[in-house]
Amino acid sequence: MHPKRKQRLTLALLVVVLSSAAVGLVSYALRGNINLFYPPADVVAGKAPIDRAIRVGGMVVEGSVQRSEHDLTTRFAVTDYDGVVEVSYTGILPDLFAEGEGVVASGVLAADGSFRATEVLAKHDENYMPPEVAEALQGKAPGTAGYPGKDSG
């Protein structure tokens, strides 16, 4: 082959190999190999490691929050509408923490499926609506009616 053309071919091959490597690695990373947090369903299904620091994210189940009377311990349930994880946390909860809101708790999962959080983060979601609409939606929110919430003891 003509050397100039061979050189160009080598370069083109290099570009193709590198770009496909980049694409392959990104798709590998995106195929669930980045764990931002475990959804409760995975925890219930036993996919989350026990006795290791993990994060669990989901919605706080309505009516599940129980505050202790003598210390700062709070117990609540987190759900993704497929599974529920019981969480206990000692400390001051963030202001935006509320029932029916999203949280991510980091901590350790015990063998009995309960989760001891060392940190709880909360954030408002991105729905904007007038108060009347919000009221109308209240009874219908998936977190309250359709979900078989378990009472924590």
């Binding site: 590198l18 770009s19 490597a21 980049a22 690695l25 990104v26 590998y28 990373a29 764990n35 620091a53």
Partner: peptide, 18 residues
């Protein structure tokens, strides 16, 4: 923290290749 870092490493590798 004991998690699997492979996803993040893959992203770094992708950045390097690109």
């Amino acid at each position: 923290l004991g998690y699997d870092p492979s996803g993040w490493l893959a992203l770094l590798g992708a950045l390097a290749a690109g």
